[in-house]
């Protein structure tokens, strides 16, 4: 144990705390898959028996598939656009000396802590003043605002982590800016880009507040679920749907974190 530093020594109190924290956090969430397989339209104990009928019901619901399609489309666009803009922003932040740089970065990151409702209302007011009708495009716009800071936060460490002389070496060896980006910068930051795509897609896919203000006639999946909550008979299939979303989100976020860290530890050596 002597080779383990003081700060790294296992700490029982902290470990117990971490477990309690996780249980309190995820126990309510776990009740969703639990009741999704329960053979009753009422969400209450005792459980009535195992069924997959709510999942089967989902399958037959046309409007749900439309909503899913909407969410996927918005998600893809948001992920691609905010990651692309995030790459440009992260590059600009790490590669150039801007006056007032830290203030700019702070402003870019602000939407992470600003209540979404403020941006939602602000955008709604703005759009209606200019006369742009609400649609999936406006939802996409709202999601971009939410996702961009996350994209930048994911990409910044990748850009900060690699030596600027890498790009200079490429230029020195005869490649112009474009080929330098494709042959050196892009491959090195690729894990960050993949992580950012996964993360922003997941955020957009789950997002409710912006969608609430900015959705036109075509609902995203969370909006659809929201609308279904009014009908008690539909509730179990909402749970079934939530179970699926929960599962997929988990996988995507973990994948994003894992890929985002890939290679970073290697560079630390």
């Amino acid at each position: 144990m002597s080779d383990v530093s003081y700060i790294r020594r296992p700490n029982r109190v902290l470990t117990v705390y971490a477990y309690i924290f996780l249980i309190v956090l995820y126990l309510p969430v776990l009740s969703i898959p639990l009741f999704a397989f329960n053979d009753s339209i009422y969400v209450r104990f005792p459980l009535q028996g195992f069924t997959t009928q709510w999942f089967v019901q989902l399958w037959e619901r046309e409007s749900l598939w439309d909503a899913l399609g909407n969410s996927l489309r918005v998600g893809f666009f948001v992920a691609a656009l905010s990651t692309a803009l995030g790459v440009l922003a992260a590059r600009a932040i790490t590669r150039t000396r801007l006056p007032g740089q830290s203030a700019i970065v702070a402003f870019v990151m602000l939407p992470i802590v600003m209540p979404g409702i403020i941006f939602g209302v602000a955008l709604l007011v703005l759009l209606s003043r200019i006369g742009i009708p609400l649609s999936l495009y406006t939802v996409t716009l709202g999601h971009m605002i939410v996702c961009l800071p996350f994209a930048i936060a994911t990409l910044l460490p990748r850009f900060e982590g690699f030596d600027k002389s890498m790009e200079e070496a490429s230029a020195d060896l005869g490649e112009n800016g474009w080929f330098t980006f494709w042959r050196v910068t892009f491959p090195i930051v690729l894990p960050g880009i993949v992580a950012s795509l996964l993360l922003t897609f997941t955020i957009s896919f789950d997002e409710v507040i912006m969608a609430f203000f900015l959705t036109g006639t075509e609902p995203t999946l969370p909006m659809y679920i929201w609308s279904q909550l009014r009908f008690p008979r539909e509730f179990p299939s909402v749970l079934a749907l939530s179970t699926i979303i929960l599962f997929v989100s988990f996988i995507m976020v973990f994948a994003a974190l894992y890929i985002g860290r890939m290679g970073l530890q290697k560079n630390d050596r």
Binding site: F162, D163, S165, M166, E168, A169, S170, A171, D172, L173, G174, E175, N176, V184, P187, I188, G263, K266, N267
Partner: peptide
């Protein structure tokens, strides 16, 4: 003349070997 068109090449202090 930009760096990529100069008839010179450089060995960087950090070597700048492409890690990928």
């Amino acid at each position: 003349v930009p760096p990529f068109e100069r008839p010179v090449n450089m060995v960087f202090q950090s070597y700048a070997i492409f890690p990928h």
